[in-house]
Each structure stands twice: as C-alpha cells, then as structure tokens.
Design a protein around this nucleic acid. Structure first.
Length: 280
DNA sequence: AAACAAACCTGTGCGC
DNA sequence: TGCGCACAGGTTTGTT
C-alpha cells in the first residue's frame, strides 16, 4: 500500500493528535505485529510516556517520546494507522491500540490495523541497534537535501536498470512500485533503461520529475486504489490516483502521447506499467 | 555487483 | 454459488 506520499500523509494527519498526548494503555492482539521486541517491551516502553514529535524517513514512521525513546511503525503492504474514539468499534485486523490522553481534550486511540501482518511496531532506544535498516536508507526526497548533485551522486552511473534503482531504498528512500512507474513515465524513460547510459540532461529531468511527482502526490493526499485500502489516520482517501498515467492502466491509450497503449510487464515479482511510445 | 526467486500473510477479483 | 488461481502498495534473505 503505502509509499512515501501515503506515509507522509498519514504522518501529517495524526501529528496534531499524537504530539503532546500521553499513552495510558496499550492493547496488543497480534504478537506478529510486535515481533521484533515482543509485547512487553512495547507496552512498558509506551505506557506513561508522552509523544513529543513525529518524523518520517522513506516509508518508516517515527513517534518520538519525551524520555528519548521512539516508536517506529512500518506499514509494509497493508498497514494502516487510524485515529478513533475509544468507544468506536475496532475494525478487523486491529493489532495494536494505543490509548492517548491529553489535558483539555477527549481521550482517543491510535490503532494499527494490518490484514497481511507484514507491518510492525517497534519501541526502541536510539542507543540500541533495534532498527538497523533505517541507517541503510538512502536520500529522502522530502526530508534530506535533495539537490541535483546529491541525486547525481546517489543514482548516476549505476549499471542497473532505472526501475531497480528507483526502488532501491538504499539509494532513494520512499519510492515504491506506483510512484516508480509514474516518475519514469513523466521522465519518458523506460523501466529497463540502464542508468549509466543517461546523459546529464536526462538525469536532471529525472531528478526534477521525482520531486514533482512525489510532492504532487503528497499534496493530493496520496493514492487510494480501487480497493480503498489506503486512507489517512482520519479515514480520508487520497486523490492522486486520478493523476496516474500508467499504473493500473494496462491496455489504455497513453494520455500523454495519445498513441501508445499502456503495457504491463512482470519482472522480479513486480509489475511495471509503461508506455512503449513515449518512454525510451 | 546485480538479477532473480522465495519467503513472510490475508484478502479480493477473476475465469470457469 | 463455489473453487482455484493470480495478484496486491514492501522488505529481507538466499541463490545464481
């Protein structure tokens, strides 16, 4: 489900309710969702503590606590974070629930819902090495300085296909299957184009396009596909799917060139959508 | 170094 | 209506 724009939209939609709130209770109904530390560490690390901020890096969400520890949430394929009233019914696959209290406001719940259970919740001390994968993340296009020079240093000259590079979280953090396809289409580059064959002008276009697509998607609240799996913490759907030019448009005529028919190919277990006319 | 497959799970949509 | 299969936004691990 969620790539950088969706994760960022979730973060923004829950920040105000979470920051300044104290956790008074934690319900854990699925051990797999807290598999990294087990339920006791999560409960003990959260109950009584107050959130002071939220952060995102790539597809990883962080909730910083006043005591210096943090909670990390990764939504993986099907995870959702929802804010809800404590007395509202919990939907299916609700695995972790944090009761939040703050002075002068009604209590609320932050709920981690995840049908496929690939996602996880971790509470950790920054001095520990509990989330080492975060240190291996590459540039975040919104969080880091993402100048062309930075981009060029990270991407340029790689002897790999373009899509593989865009999806590599250790190169650029946050791009997934949807936005990789949309970025490549807007940059008019094929998924299997070797990056080391791209001239500087093309790399500059790719750099600009990457920022544009991701920023527009964030502004649109992300992409909610036909299964409506993705919504933000307040249950709102995104609308960037209406701007998709290739993703889930196999067989349709290309909106950009008006000539190509969008194709879908499968490789390395993932599908890639592209226009055989505009993308070279 | 890079490409690929499989693994982790559940739900949905499709063809028959 | 039911069954079996393909497929799904991600990441890690192991194999060529």
């Amino acid at each position: 489900m969620p790539e950088l724009p969706e994760v960022e939209t979730v973060r923004r939609s829950l920040d105000a309710a979470v920051v300044g709130s104290r956790v008074t209770r934690v319900d854990i109904d699925r051990l797999r969702s807290v598999r990294r530390t087990g339920p006791d560490v999560v409960r003990a690390g959260l109950v009584g503590e107050t959130f002071i901020g939220t952060r995102r890096r790539g597809k990883y969400l962080f909730f910083d606590l006043a005591n210096g520890n943090s909670m990390m949430v990764h939504l993986r394929m099907s995870g959702r974070l929802l804010l809800a009233a404590p007395d509202s019914p919990r939907e299916a696959h609700t695995h972790v629930v944090l009761r939040l209290e703050r002075t002068g406001a009604a209590s609320s719940e932050l709920r981690f819902v995840d049908p496929r259970t690939f996602g996880e919740v971790v509470v950790f001390n920054p001095d520990d090495d509990l989330v080492p994968e975060v240190d291996r993340l590459g540039l975040d296009p919104l969080v880091d300085e993402f100048s062309f020079d930075q981009f060029h240093a990270a991407v340029g000259g790689r002897r790999r296909g373009l899509k593989a590079v865009l999806l590599d979280q250790s190169v650029i953090a946050g791009i997934g299957n949807i936005y990789a396809d949309e970025i490549m289409h807007r940059a008019r580059l094929r998924w299997d184009r070797r990056v080391d064959t791209l001239a500087t002008a093309r790399l500059k276009l790719l750099h600009r396009t990457t920022v544009e697509v991701l920023c527009e998607a964030v502004a649109a609240g992300g992409s909610t596909l036909s299964d409506t799996q993705y919504v933000d913490a307040l249950g709102r759907e995104g609308i960037f799917q209406t701007e998709h030019r290739v993703y889930a448009r196999e067989g349709e005529r290309c909106i950009t060139c008006g000539r190509g028919i969008i194709r879908r190919v499968t490789g390395a277990g993932r599908s890639t959508h592209f226009c055989p006319v505009c993308q070279r």
